[in-house]
Amino acid sequence: MKNAVDVQNLSKNYGDTEALKEISFSVGKGELFGFIGPDGAGKTTLFRILATLLLADSGAATVEGYEVVKDYKKIRQIIGYMPGRFSLYQDLTVEENLRFFATIFGTTIEENYELIKEIYSQIEPFKTRKAGQLSGGMKQKLALSCALIHKPEVLFLDEPTTGVDAVSRQEFWEMLKRLKTMGITIVVSTPYMDEAALCDRVALIQDGSIMQISTPYEVVEAYPMGLFSVTSTDIYQLLHDLQKLPQAHSVFAFGQAAHLSYKKENVTASEVIRFLKETGHEDVHVEEIKPTIEDCFMELMQGSEQANERTSGRADK
């Protein structure tokens, strides 16, 4: 079976800035594939190249076997693309926008209504409202409906949940799971690390390079360190003091706890507790935990050369 997306050694520069550095990956048919990384990692550049809106400097990319440069017309017919910035017509109504996109692709709302029904029915009560006057969550649903109305084979969603609240984010991912069951390949990007767990496979991307590609489970399994979740009565002081523990590899805040990573078998929980009690901490709890994707991402970032430069000074803060 051929892949839905194949990318080989793709590079793109903007002046001196290397947005993409020889990245390679493939996405299987029907896969839900996530690009996880912060702003400036190169996600949007990559999506624009795959959507045939931008030319790469070098490398090759195909979508459903079609080449992004030579076969761009064909690709445009079979993909749905939802850019990061809201790009529908603000002065057209909800329904006019959807009809416009259906018409462009030579179809009708009615013909593919089943595909978008679940998403579109939520905004249908507002179908005479201008798109520019919708709330953020509704805009997002309309944009997804418009990207789906021609029944694409591959859906590219560039940061669909950025700036969206936790509840709407969860709903959006539930929608993606259902679209996946309809056989649509979905390539999605996000800066939210917790969303990685919802993908079949993820690429962790930073500074134009892919640091790792695998299933979320494998990302966590590949974490090379041991990890403790540590709490005490004073979290701020705790973060500071844990840095001084000689065996500490890294210390990061995670909500109400500090995550302390260490070289495996280098230190035990009771040693950490003793150290903190001697430093004056009370109500100390130390628990061995599995890393989250965010722990893994930060570990990978620290491993890469450029990240070292950027994050220097981390340990003394």
């Binding site: 912060p38 702003d39 950025t162 930060m298």
Partner: peptide, 20 residues
């Protein structure tokens, strides 16, 4: 107002150090 939207996880934490 959403000061850390989209920034990498390490920078996000450094930012909170500045807030403290």
């Amino acid at each position: 107002d959403e000061p850390t939207g989209g920034v990498d996880p390490i920078t996000r934490r450094q930012f909170w150090d500045m807030i403290y």
